[in-house]
Amino acid sequence: MSSKRWRMQLPLHVMIWPGLILVLLFCYGPMVGLIIAFQDFVPTNGLFGSEFVGLKHFEYMYSLPQTTEVIRNTLFISVMKIVAGLLAPIATALLLNEIRRESFKRSVQTLIYLPHFLSWVILSGILIEVLSPTNGIVNSLLASMGVEPIFFLGDQSWFPFVMVGTDVWKEFGFGTIVYLAALTSINPSLYEAAVIDGANRWQQTLYITLPGMLPIIVLMLTLSLGNVLNAGFDQIFNLYNPSVYATGDILDTYVYRLAFVNAQFSVATAVGLFKSVISFTLISISYWVAYRFANYRIF
């Protein structure tokens, strides 16, 4: 490249550099730190002074029965979240599409988007209060119908379903935005033609609206594949407790406890690396598929 062109583009390079330096330090720096997964890391010896042990920690991780359990919990919770998180917004968007009164539609949207913007700390505070087995409002209502109190956050069999349910509660409203946007791009003359042919609202939904939304539904499903190992750290870390570890402990919370409760830094890093590599592979595949078949581009 000519030096004149380089000099002309220099300001563009200079603009990027501050951000690039911070990204290199704080995003690529920790990737170098991943070598501690292959060491017996001792904090006082530092990153390069610890002994190299190869795949020891991965073998240890593989031998722990807890690891299998945690992976199973992660997959169970995340797959249910992906399915429910896909269906609930689509159904809501279809129902909102039937509403002709704009003011009503906007009020509904205002209320159902709200939980998305509150953090899991706030929502957990609320859920712990509301779902309390002794004096929470949900159990008070159940009691008035003659149902025994349910310990939603302390009962192993309930916990994963409560996680899925509350996650849908937080995100389904915001999730409708994408589908509502897809609905506006459907050609109105299709509906007019269908009405002339005698199609009722249900048939219009089935044969025009749903096929019109199909590309975006498939795209959202594809992109969500990258989240198969993300069962929701923020939510579960705030809501779980030792009595539900058997069904509620997920990879991210497991890594956190290995590192900061048990101080097994190398094992924690090994489990984290295992998760990152699989997630990266899944995300790459899903983006490639989305790019190939839906012409979806990140930038």
Partner: peptide, 22 residues
């Protein structure tokens, strides 16, 4: 080239422990 350097950080990360140590 620059764009991929940034986008890659969305797809892969060093994880909890290395970030803490850094």
């Amino acid at each position: 080239g620059y764009a991929w350097l940034f986008v890659f950080t969305m797809l892969f990360s060093g994880g909890l422990v290395p970030s803490y140590i850094l």
